[in-house]
Nucleic acid binder design. Structure first.
Length: 697
DNA sequence: AAAATTGACATTTTT
DNA sequence: TGTCAATTTT
């Protein structure tokens, strides 16, 4: 038996043991949210609930797997029979099971964003929209507005009026595209991400027997990261749970960072109205970060326009102040980060150090430095593995193996063959769809590459349950094309194909594999993070994770907050929450980097940039500041330390960050520490510059 | 109709 | 940085 009282604090215990009826858990960052869910899973099973009756919806499948693994370890049994995953993944499985109910007799395919763009491109060509008009919105832009309008459930024209006024003149054209897009998807049995959710809702609402089935199976529902659900997801959850009301949702409004995708903080705030009699539990004790780090994050939160009071406190009272480092440029920033990493790696293994940033490309200069220094790293976020051109090629060829016709896959797959372009590909597809095999045969006699592909597809037909064999054959077929097309970075791409083979080895069904490749962005090598690699990640992909040492880079205007968000105060708040999420990932060390200039593509020079307003607005310095001198690097005294006045004699080992090689010589300007700290730099002169800064000579 | 070439351009975040 | 669309050549 598990001793819950001993392992959990009172609030956590309350959330764990409230198994009947609706529960809302407001879980501050680092408050043991995952622990609570894990123990609750175990508790339910110990109380005799059959694992099959539990549904755990999380933001990534990786998170779900981890929780199931940990609960299983507590119980000393496998919990694989709990259903867990993302909303989208769950919806896919449900729709697949009941595809025929919705009229998809030959199944359906899931579209990734590249597929969707292809459809939009065709529609634009057909309507001859935006020919020669350079300001006509890009396909990607059109698509993102269509999706956003759907997610927010507001008409497209209103969304565009509100968020993209400059596109006003194109509203009618975009609406035409939207209509056609919907029709086209239906015709080809294709579902995009949003369709998965809306079709599932329709399935449950219009088919009572399906709803009854779902309710009978999933008697206990838990939803993690509820602050990032959108309207239809919230409706799905309540639809499935409303009969017996055994639903627990967990979230933190301060960490809502997916508004751009239609996530609605209102969901978590409205939950009590949706389920009257809900039990509300607040987890406010932070087990992750040291108090100086929490002081900084509370400081960030204090500037929120819309404030929800939250009093996070830590039992880890000691610890270093977060540091703020101002390198002269982004290149210099990369070197400074590298130098910190080298130093931190004496204390922590590489995979316990993370560098976080706002957008995928912000890490490029750093990646160059890491490669030069042969520091292994693993990057999360940015481009999706399955959307890299070569992976996508292989996946499309694989899609052609399944029996059901798939126009997009045919177009891309056949387009690889010499002598075949869009027109021919479409012609061949039509022939295939209508069973005119003679036409295909005729072309095969003319084009040996097509003949070869046809033969391969025939050989692989019927191997739906051995996806691994299918994919390896496809890869062998594809390799010559890869060599021809991507000769420059061949080794990297070949390695990617190897990875793909490793991934597919874990599947026994081709369709499920293909769907997962579209639905599962997280790490390509499964849920085992590499043990020996530094972590680079966008902040969005860092959600829910934690590291002993965290660095946040590019805290400058236009990058963080992103230039796009500057107009709307609501989006500004979301950016601020994003910084909050980034900083609350840190357990012991937090480093914030503000380069004074960044490389500007257009001019080819470094342009000066000002610091992020989120840094300027921090009222009292919650950090120790270092400024890089233009003459070179600065050296800090090794014996420097901060002494907490209220702790008497015991010195805080601030020297840990005062001996960096990058700070080679010159002067240091640092922030005046908060009142309760006293600076102690033996052997060095301290000069007060103003009420905010000290200079050390 | 397909392939090669040029020229412009735009870059958040993710299921 | 590479991606995307328009243009020219095969």
């Amino acid at each position: 038996m598990i001793n819950y009282e001993k392992s959990l604090n009172p609030a956590q215990l309350e959330a764990v043991t409230a198994t009947q009826g609706p529960v809302l858990v407001i879980a501050g960052a680092g408050s043991g949210k995952t622990r609570t869910i894990v123990y609750r899973l175990a508790y339910l099973v110990e109380k005799g609930i059959v694992p099959e009756n539990i549904l755990l919806l999380t933001f990534t499948r990786k998170a779900a797997n981890q929780m199931l693994f940990r609960a299983g370890r507590l119980l000393e049994r496998e919990l694989g029979s709990v259903s867990g995953g993302t909303f989208h993944g769950f919806c896919f499985l449900l729709l697949r099971k009941f595809a025929s109910v919705l009229g998809f007799n030959n199944g359906f395919q899931i579209l990734d964003s590249g597929d969707c763009e292809d459809i939009i491109r065709d529609i634009r060509a057909e309507f001859k929209l935006g020919r020669g008009d350079r300001s006509f919105p890009r396909n990607r832009t059109i698509l993102s507005f269509i999706s956003k309008a759907r997610n927010k459930e507001i008409p497209l024209e209103i969304l565009i009026e509100k968020e993209a006024f400059h596109l006003g003149e194109y509203i009618q054209d975009i609406k035409r595209v939207e209509n056609r897009y919907t029709i086209e998807k239906q015709r080809l049995c294709l579902l995009d991400y949003d369709d998965l959710l809306f079709f599932t809702e329709r399935l449950l609402e219009e088919h009572g027997e399906v709803l009854d089935f779902v309710r009978a199976v999933y008697k206990y529902i838990m939803v993690d990261e509820y602050q990032d659900t959108n309207l239809v997801q919230a409706r799905l959850a309540s639809l499935m749970a409303s009969q017996n009301g055994n639903i627990m949702v967990v979230g933190d409004d301060a960490q809502s960072i997916y508004g751009f995708r239609g996530a609605d903080v209102g969901n978590i705030l409205d939950f009590p109205n949706l389920f009257p009699g809900v039990k509300i539990v607040r987890l406010e004790e932070n087990f992750r970060s040291t108090q100086p780090i929490l002081d900084l994050t509370n400081n960030i939160l204090a500037h929120m326009e819309k404030k929800f009071e939250k009093a996070l406190f830590s039992s880890r009272k000691d610890g270093n102040l977060p540091e703020l480092i101002r390198p002269v440029s982004d290149m210099s920033q990369a070197r400074a980060v590298l130098s910190r990493i080298v130093e931190l790696s004496g204390k922590y293994p590489l995979h316990e150090i993370a560098v976080l940033f706002r957008a995928g490309y912000h890490s490029y200069p750093l990646e160059v430095e890491l490669n030069k220094a042969s520091v292994p790293y693993q990057k999360f976020g940015g481009i999706k593995f399955s959307e890299a051109a070569h992976i996508k090629d292989v996946l499309c060829l694989t899609r052609m193996v399944g029996g059901s016709p798939d126009l997009l896959a045919w177009k891309r797959g056949l387009g690889l063959l010499p002598g075949v372009g869009p027109k021919t590909a479409e012609r061949l597809y039509k022939a295939y769809e209508q069973g005119q095999h003679e036409d295909l045969l005729k072309f095969a006699r003319k084009n040996k590459w097509f003949a070869e592909l046809r033969e391969l597809l025939t050989d692989l037909a019927g191997l739906e349950n051995e996806p691994s064999r299918v994919v390896s054959s496809i890869i062998e077929f594809y390799k010559p094309y890869l060599e021809k097309q991507h000769a420059e970075d061949l080794p990297k791409r070949l390695a990617g194909l190897d990875q793909l083979q490793q991934i597919v080895a874990g599947y026994n069904n081709l369709d499920v594999f293909l769907a997962d490749m579209v639905l599962e962005n997280s790490d390509p090598l499964g849920f085992a993070a590499r043990e020996d690699a530094l972590v680079l990640s966008t902040i969005h992909s860092a959600k829910g994770l934690e590291w002993p040492a965290v660095m946040v880079i590019d805290l400058v205007e236009d990058r963080f907050p992103s230039r796009h968000s500057m107009q709307d105060p609501g989006e500004m708040d979301e950016e601020r929450r994003l910084l909050y999420v980034a900083c609350t990932r840190a357990k012991d060390y937090l480093g914030l980097f503000v380069p004074s200039s960044v490389y500007h593509r257009g001019s080819g020079f470094n342009q000066p940039v000002s610091e992020s307003p989120f840094i300027s607005e921090l009222s009292t310095p919650s950090f120790c500041e270092f400024r890089e001198n233009h003459l070179g690097m600065l050296k800090t005294p090794q014996s420097a330390s901060f002494v907490r006045k209220d702790l008497g004699q015991s010195a805080v080992p601030a020297s840990a960050y005062c001996k960096h090689k990058i700070f080679g010589r010159g002067k240091i300007v640092m922030a005046m520490p908060p009142n309760k700290y006293k600076v102690n730099f033996p052997g060095f002169g301290l000069k007060v510059i103003n009420s905010d800064y000290l200079e050390i000579e």
